[in-house]
């Protein structure tokens, strides 16, 4: 179903529930994978995805249609992920390393994780990046999104995004080659 039709259904009180159900079905997987790549753990991703869609429902009146529907949902998801990770860091009080260790542990544990050695090594290397940089990297590298789309979601300039991605790639390659 097209976004325009979804928007229409969600904006109509009589079809709101049905429209929301269709919206969740359409975007749940994309949002889940976007979140999962950031928080690594399935249970955390599950909680966050639920919260994200509940926010979409609650704040639907705030969607003015200035941006595309998926951009708006992605922005909510991105904010939720970053807030979640920031809270995690606050809980540890001290270094980012502890959160990195925790996320690394989830990869090692292999709880709903598969992939060969190189893929897992890449995932661990990604955890060394700052959260926002990792987010940009995921959207560009894994989701193959255009810089324009990422710019709209993250409210960052295209130039800054390109620089961020370039630095991320360089750092990851250094880690992968062991330099």
């Amino acid at each position: 179903m097209e976004d325009a039709e979804l928007i229409e259904k969600l904006s109509n009180e009589d079809t709101r529930n049905y429209g929301f159900n269709l919206l969740v079905r359409k975007y749940q997987e994309r949002i889940y994978w976007h979140v999962r790549k950031m928080v690594i753990n399935h249970d955390d991703a599950d909680d966050l995805v639920q919260e994200i869609f509940v926010k979409v429902w609650k704040y639907w009146k705030n969607f003015r249609g200035d941006s595309q529907l998926y951009t708006w949902i992605y922005r909510i998801a991105t904010n939720e992920c970053l807030t979640f990770l920031a809270k995690k860091k606050k809980r540890f009080f001290l270094p980012i390393v502890d959160v990195e260790k925790e996320l690394c542990h989830y990869i090692d544990e292999g709880y709903y994780i598969s992939g060969d050695e190189v893929q897992l090594k890449l995932q661990k290397a990604l955890l060394t990046l700052p959260d926002k940089q990792r987010l940009v990297f995921n959207m560009k590298y894994f989701d193959d999104m255009k810089y324009e789309e990422i710019a709209e979601i993250t409210k960052t300039s295209i130039g800054a995004l390109k620089a961020s991605y370039h630095h991320a790639v360089k750092k990851i390659e250094e880690i992968l080659t062991g330099n």
Binding site: N17, F20, N21, V24, R25, Q28, E29, Y32, W33, R36, K37, I40, H42, D46, V49, Q50, F53, V54, W57, K58, Y112, I113, S114, G115, V118, Q119, L120, L122, Q123, Y141, F142, D144, L176
Partner: peptide, 26 residues
């Protein structure tokens, strides 16, 4: 390294998720 999904979900996860979300939203 080709971009590849390394994460999985429990079986039938995406079938039950919309119902859970809908109930929570209401």
């Amino acid at each position: 390294i080709p971009p590849k999904k390394v994460f999985n979900v429990p079986e039938g996860y995406f079938d039950t998720l919309p119902g859970i979300i809908q109930a929570k939203a209401i």
